[in-house]
Design a binder for these strands. Structure first.
Ligand SMILES: [Mn+2]
Ligand SMILES: [Mn+2]
Ligand SMILES: [Zn+2]
Ligand SMILES: [Zn+2]
Lengths: 141, 141
DNA sequence: TCCTAAATAGGAATATATCTTATTTAAAAA
DNA sequence: TTTTTAAATAAGATATATTCCTATTTAGGA
């Protein structure tokens, strides 16, 4: 935030547009974890005719350049699990394959301090993300 | 297998329908983590006129009775994060609020054995899920 | 200032999932 | 067994988030 958004864009090689500057400013000023819609509602005040597409495009652009991150699931649709034993998953970021893994060590880790002030924890969800063997092989071509 | 399913349904107090029996059988026979569409494609062979709605309803039903689990995101839309420091999240399963947490202990845990055979891990994603303070308070009414 | 590739607005399209309603059916009652 | 009725289903409409398409505008370089 020390640096001007304009400079950041130029460094990365992005065109400086009013929409981008405003979205950047909004993101910096918003607390929490806004959804695209939240950003859209905010920027509409200054750019009443901005389109949803521009907001989505810009957020993707920022994400691709590491200016923001997504808090999200990898798969685009719900996947069901018939394995009811406690386990975790390796998820391929390319083909979305989900593979069961056991990782007892992580289940034993005590809760982080202070979490009881946030609410009642009922579950912990752990995902290892990467590129699966199949996709790595395909890559070698 | 079919005998089993019939008994399970009765135990839980569910009506035994051909669609449910078949979906149950399909789930038991499918490996991996099928999406609703995968189940739909499979059951269509025997019930060509089955509707997507029935598949979704049945999967929800099974999930509500603990016969299967969802591998899924909690929020219905993507949320963005401007906090680029390594951190994790507490997510409220009720209001979908996302709160940053630090949990260094979990970052230090070594990868589970054998994961290198699955692919190249690039990231680990950890979420604590539960009911946030606000929702707990509201509950007291 | 002019030029051109990139960005945008607006709306259409897509995809996943849920809802509505008329019809059928499971299973309890007679 | 037959009857009864609430529950389940099929079919299609609807909702919602996101992406795509295309004509127009614009940023930034020549
Ligand atoms: Mn699994
Ligand atoms: Mn965060
Ligand atoms: Zn893969
Ligand atoms: Zn909450």
């Amino acid at each position: 935030m020390e640096k001007d958004a304009r400079d950041i864009f130029k460094e990365i090689g992005l065109r400086v547009t009013p929409q981008r500057l405003e979205i950047f400013k909004i993101l910096a000023s918003m607390h929490g974890h806004p959804a695209a819609e939240d950003v859209f509602e905010r920027i509409r005040r200054r750019f009443p005719s901005i389109s949803f597409d521009t907001v989505y495009r810009t957020l993707s652009l920022f994400e691709n350049h590491g200016l923001i991150k997504k808090v999200h699931h990898l798969a685009d649709k719900t996947r069901y699990d018939t394995n009811l034993k406690r386990h975790h998953h390796f998820v391929c970021i390319r083909c979305k394959k989900i593979i069961d893994i056991e990782w007892d060590e992580i289940d034993g880790i005590p809760m982080p301090k202070g979490v009881e002030n946030l609410g009642r924890v009922e579950d912990r969800y752990v995902e290892l993300r990467g590129i699966c063997k199949d996709c790595l092989n395909e890559e070698e071509e």
